[in-house]
Amino acid sequence: MLNLLFYHKQGLIDKHGRFNYNTIMKKKTWIWVLILAAVVLAGVIATIRISRRSGTYALITVDGELVERIDLSKVRESRDLVVETAYGRNIVHIEQGAISVTEADCPDQICVLMGKLTTDGGMPIICMPHRLMIEIEDDGLDG
């Protein structure tokens, strides 16, 4: 209620509670600074949360098709998996609790530079030229 009153005072909503877009557009600079800063902050917080999502299964897909589903917690000996498709070749290094691309013949090498994705989190590894993606399957238990 207090909020509504505040918005009304600012001219952001009319007396019927409808948003007044014209005033919003003409409002002072600080409102936009606030809105945009909120988007940035929300984006950063969401990214931190996403990168902390944990799970034990790693999914390797090429062109949206599942290549392999690996339980990273049960890897006893680290091994290299060669993913070779019509698009190109990536060497995926699988070890206890972690997965990474160690070698690839793609032009940008971004997949290699992305480093390790672990069971404790990280961002999905993408090799765009080879349409390859490695992500941790969400076990539903967000940390």
């Binding site: 990214t47 062109d63 349409r131 992500e135």
Partner: peptide, 15 residues
């Protein structure tokens, strides 16, 4: 890539 997992990058791209 044809995988919805790419959306993990949506928040940082918005920011």
């Amino acid at each position: 890539v044809k995988t919805p997992g790419v959306l993990a990058y949506a928040p940082i791209l918005a920011a």
